[in-house]
Amino acid sequence: MELFGHNDVAFIWCKKGEAFNPKKAIPTVKHGGGNLMRWGCFSANGPGNLITVNGTMKKEQYIKILNNNIRQSAEKLGLGHQWTFQHDNDPKHTAKVVKKWKRFAVAQPES
């Protein structure tokens, strides 16, 4: 997601010795201090919940987001119990408490 411009690659062909000519430079917008983190899920049936994360997400907040959204999203998408939970190897995803949560919360169907 980009707020300004496009994350495109641009090539400019210059004669020898003109590579650092300011007239050949592409202007950019400099800004800082902002970021936006989201948690989301999707399936072939469409998107699930999309959650805005406030601040830096820690493992406890990650578990809270999963508790409040993963089953709800699976139900919303009509997946029943036929779905697979995947994430990357971010430290909060591989923390012991998250692994424990996955063993009990995801593997066990709700009664």
Rank of each mutant, 00 (worst) to 15 (best):
V53T: 08
Y62Q: 03
M1Y: 15
K64F: 10
K15F: 03
V97Y: 05
K15S: 12
G55K: 15
I65A: 01
G55A: 11
N35Q: 04
A107Q: 13
K16N: 13
N54C: 15
Q61S: 00
K100L: 12
E2Y: 13
N49R: 06
A19L: 04
A74H: 01
Q86D: 06
I26P: 07
Y62M: 12
K58V: 14
A74N: 10
T28Y: 02
K23V: 02
Q61P: 07
K59R: 08
H93Q: 08
G32Y: 09
K16G: 03
K23W: 09
K99E: 11
N89G: 15
N49E: 08
G48A: 02
F11T: 08
I12F: 05
A95H: 03
M57H: 00
I65F: 04
E2F: 01
S73V: 10
A105R: 03
R71D: 07
A25K: 12
A74F: 11
V97I: 11
K30L: 12
T56N: 09
I12L: 09
D88T: 07
P47G: 05
P27W: 00
K24E: 03
N45M: 08
V97D: 14
N35P: 04
V53Q: 04
I65Y: 00
P91I: 03
A107S: 09
L66D: 00
